Simulated assay, not measured.
Amino acid sequence: MRVLGIETSCDETGVAVYDTDRPGPDGLRAHAVYSQIALHAEYGGVVPELASRDHVRKLLPLVRQTLAEAGIAMRDIDGVAYTAGPGLVGALLVGAGVARSLAWALDVPAIAVHHMEGHLLAPLLEDPDLKPPFVALLVSGGHTQLIEVDAIGRYRLLGETLDDAAGEAFDKTAKLMGLPYPGGPQLAALAEQGRPGAYKFSRPMTDRPGLDFSFSGLKTQVLLAWRDSDQSETTRADIARGFEDAVVDTLAIKCERALDAAGCDTLVVAGGVGANKRLRAKLDAIATKRGGRVRFPRPALCTDNGAMIAFAGALRLQAGQHSDTAVSVQPRWDMASLPAVPDTANA
């Protein structure tokens, strides 16, 4: 089954083709992502209306480009998967409208995909031997969650952020120190030049039981440190390093607790912050110490992309699941409400 995946939840237009007859990494026939960073940089953040209009301009050309790279014609598509939420409602509607129209014209099934399930399953795309049960850390600009995965579609929330997501905290902290948009990657790059221990910030909510997160207080600590400093480039790098170390340590501590709570030694990490080098190294060390394993998607598949949507959709389409013909989206969507995929649920 050749599945076309469409991702338009925020400020990246992603398209991919996944072929279930070629399992593992070879199944990804082609994928392309167009980023709107340059469009939104002038405003210091995503402008929803501009994002929607840019998806309208870019999506169909990107579909044609991806099919050409995959070496298949539109008529060879057997199913269409699209992000239906969570995300910006206007941006989601662009992808859903195009996906449903293509599915109707081709007379093939379509499936609405949960954006965060796409992220969660991305590591499985490249590692076909990776199967539930495992614990997943979903860590991005909009989400920071720990989820116990018993099967594909059978998820239990263990903990989540009570305020800012980790990626959002990166972006906001970078902005308050005057770094250009998008701030998170800029801050992580700057932290590479910082001295470890020059600034020591708290590891929020690690001094008490539980698996929830909170990063707003950490952001305030950085603001106060920055205001009271000489604001030199050296100090900026040191503060960036202190902030990144605090976030990475906090995520790592909570991940280890989650593995203990779930009685599991397999950790899957997904989402944009999952590309952070220091986080990857820290979680690798924890997995080695426990005699377990941690799996990440390649950095290109950590950020929003069509490949994860095509893959997640293919798993559900293969199981006989599909969505009705209505063009509908869910800007807010609880992942626990998703149906399980029978082949992975031991049903």
Rank of each mutant, 00 (worst) to 15 (best):
M1R: 07
T8M: 00
T8V: 12
T13R: 06
V17R: 09
V17N: 08
V17G: 10
Y18F: 15
D21S: 15
R22H: 15
G24N: 03
G27K: 03
Y34L: 11
Q36R: 12
A38R: 14
L50H: 07
V56Q: 12
L59C: 03
P61C: 11
V63A: 04
L67H: 05
L67G: 06
A73W: 01
D76M: 10
G79H: 09
A84D: 00
A84T: 00
V89S: 09
V89T: 12
L93A: 02
G95C: 11
A96G: 01
W104E: 00
A105S: 15
D107L: 04
H114F: 04
E117I: 10
G118A: 06
G118L: 06
D127N: 15
S140K: 06
G142P: 09
L146H: 08
D150T: 14
A151Y: 01
G153A: 07
L157G: 11
E160F: 03
T161P: 12
A165F: 08
A174F: 04
G183S: 00
G194P: 13
S202I: 04
S202M: 12
R203W: 01
D207T: 05
S216L: 01
L223W: 11
A225N: 02
W226P: 08
R227L: 15
D230N: 04
Q231H: 12
Q231R: 15
S232L: 10
E233N: 14
A240H: 01
F243K: 02
E244K: 11
A246L: 08
D249T: 13
I253H: 08
D260F: 00
A261I: 05
D265N: 12
G272W: 10
L279Q: 03
L279M: 13
D284W: 02
A285C: 02
K289C: 00
R290E: 06
G292A: 01
F296S: 13
A300W: 03
D304R: 12
Q318F: 07
S323C: 04
T325H: 11
P331L: 14
W333F: 15
V341C: 08
P342K: 05
